[in-house]
Design a protein around this nucleic acid. Sequence first.
RNA 1: GCGAAAGUGGCGGAAUUGGCAGACGCGCUGGACUUAGGAUCCAGUGGCCCAAAGCCGUGCGGGUUCGAGUCCCGCCUUUCGCACCA
Length: 855
Amino acid sequence: MSPYRPSEIEPKWQQKWSDARVAEIDVAAPGDKLYMLNMFPYPSGDLHVGHGRNYILGDALYRYFRMQGRAALNPMGWDAFGLPAENAAIKRGIHPRQWTMSNIVREKKQFQRWGILYDWSKEIASCHPGYYKWNQWLFLKLYERGLAYRGTAPVNWCPEDKTVLANEQVVDGKCERCGAVVEQKELAQWFLKITDYADRLDAGLDKLENWPDKVKTMQRNWIGRSVGCDIEFEVPTLGRSIRVFTTRPDTIYGATFMVVAPEHPIVADLIADHPDRAGLEAWINGVRNQSSLERQEAGKEGRFTGKHARNPFTNELIPIWLGNFVLMQYGTGAIMAVPAHDQRDFEFARQYGLPMRIVITKGGELPDVSAMTEAYTVKDESAVAVDSDIITGLAAPKAIDRICGEVEKRRIGKRMIRYRLRDWLISRQRYWGTPIPMIYCDRCGLVPVPEKDLPVELPLDVPFTGREGNPLAKHDAFVNVKCPQCRGAARRETDTMDTFVDSSWYYARFISPRDDTKIFDTKMVNRWLPVDQYIGGIEHAILHLLYARFICRVLHDLGLTEVEEPFTRLFNQGMITKEGYRDPSQNNSWVPLNEVEMRGGKAFRGPTELVPEVGKMSKSRFNVVPPDELIERYGADTERVYTLFIAPPEKEAAWSDEGVVGAYRFLGRVWNMGEQILSSVLGPRSSDGNGAGDIERVIRKMHRTIDAVTRRFDRFEFNTAISALMELSNTIGEYMAAGGRDARLRDAFTVLLQLLHPFAPHLTEEMWAMFAKKGFILTSAWPIADESLMQEDFVTIVVQVNGKLRGQIEVPNPPEEGVVMAAVQSNEKIQTWVAGKKVVKTIYVPGKLVNVVVR
RNA sequence: GCGAAAGUGGCGGAAUUGGCAGACGCGCUGGACUUAGGAUCCAGUGGCCCAAAGCCGUGCGGGUUCGAGUCCCGCCUUUCGCACCA
């Protein structure tokens, strides 16, 4: 008998799987297709156990589906363009390509060491010209359809990364990547017209039944669909009108002033003859130069323009104000202010002493305010009621409809659906990305690169200085080209694409990854898409997942696929956190783990007690757990089992070095059990009928475990699936310890191996091989539970009266009513009361409680 | 501020439809084997109590029910998301 030595068995099986290409699949072969996909990673170098959780989870699921006989596809690739590669080039003088490629090699090795099976024949890397060529092709198609355009707009500029960013990449006014405060700049940039798809992207969410509600809510909020009405307010002294958007046109009788965004084009005219024009302009410029963050922190501020507009429903002339809380980017950049029915308008009105009017809609009574804001409930003294004329007596939905109808009849506006979503800014002033295939010609203007000239290859011979400006712009051979139309001298676009373009369609490329002639094979893509199970982090709830849904619809509209939604089922795994330490005497800087000394359960560096802090693993906090050492000592199977056992997979989980030992011990016990069973002489039928030594008990437990683990796989409850396997292993262990030697023990154990296989593939393969050597033929198919064997044959009925033990009896399962009654054996008149289908029963005797507990 | 989710031992966490609260594991305590134990195995481990019996226990306060971690009402706390979107 040899002890469990994962370091000896694991590399052997990894090599075998790799040599036999077990995960390679022919997409054209028949079968019950299942497309599994983990979000492809950015190859940043070292993967830690937190990344491991994500891929191990996917692998366990993939192996489970394989065992069930599904034709499962599980490909992997690399989201290989991006800033860190370029930063490494600037910092360390390594070319981004070289840096990226060497990281890919390392990460691929790591996947193998985790025992993860991918179909490497379909590997893709977005930085490969064979891939990004189709990025460029897709861009040209978008351009042809008017879905890619060059426009000037105030955009987000990250001063740290020296590039513009998409709105989705700005979090709380800061750069999502580096945390620098984002500035606003007016620049000409490339946009993709995602707003054209806002309605479909919003409506499509309803059909995604197997997506987490949280992600759907986040997308819905981000798209921000609002149903309302545009209404013109005439400015008599200018002979023009100002258009506003409102979702509550029924409150228009209470509109006592207007507020216009300081950036609104009409502002120049509004203040042209203002006595303090200079002062107003200074104020406007002040607001303009604020970042969105500063603007919000400043609170509500405004200035009166001196002009008035006519409320089209009350005919009253109302003052026009400028206000910092009105945003040019949303709606029309102007609002009608109804202070009695809107919180923001209320605050503004109160601050500047503007009038308030309560709109009465229901027969002289106060309106239904449930959908209105605090402003109304405050009942400001100055608020007076106003007659609501044509909507008097109507409930809000009807009143809204009536006003909209009137507005349209009078041709002063129309019903409108507006979105918060803005177009996707895809140009980046950085080198390591897909070149945008466009050419600027002085005579012909914007000229797309002809399809036959694709790919526009990224030149490799550029210097990396870190100074402002894209290094591509200094590469003369790249920049200076002939115009494809007039053959005259022209300049190439030097911006590259946002890397989220690369990842917006990669799931389709896996189906025909080497095809030079087209973006993908439509017939095969229609067979394999959508992805049945997509796995990745919640950080992509909006970014990647929204873009992918958008581009998938574009591909559909181009006639390239039949699918609209790329991912049927989505799972977001939780992060793994780990304790790190900060030194309060050193400005709370992070302390490397090798300088931390544990004394009495507390952490010290020299005499200073350190402050522990649990958080996401990152190099700067020195709390990264690298898998290498762990795998060497305990094996990949241990890491796999521990990682999935630690917590429900969607939850955040704290890494504990001690906890790993538990998983290791469990696998060690399984190993020893297998060895013992192999070397024992098992008899044909040696059930001695009771307690731990009863083989029937083991068999019943086995069937219950098959059932439990199968159900838990389908519900992503890996932690309890593993605990069920530990229970089965304990039951088998007890049977063996009690001296049981029935041959069916081997069946129970091999089922344990099968159920354990997705979690600990190396150990189980090794054991299977050992069994095979002794002549036992095993199958690697997923076992099926026999329901008739899941229940206990006999149960013990324990009768308690008022909590006191009255009697105990063993009866066949399920117990009959009469048997239960007999067990109670009391003189009292008894009513039986049976709850649900459970075998637990309570008998109620007036004044007493009789609990019949079935064990 | 608005919205959502969650509060269970020393810790991670279990508990179909209301039905033995604390599965499984870590840690801890004791023991075995050891030159040694940070390896392995065995036993114990929610709290009160020497122990038994018993009592108390799922954030807090009410309620429904024979029976509530689970359902209802009102709070408190934490986490996440949104945050001038008219």
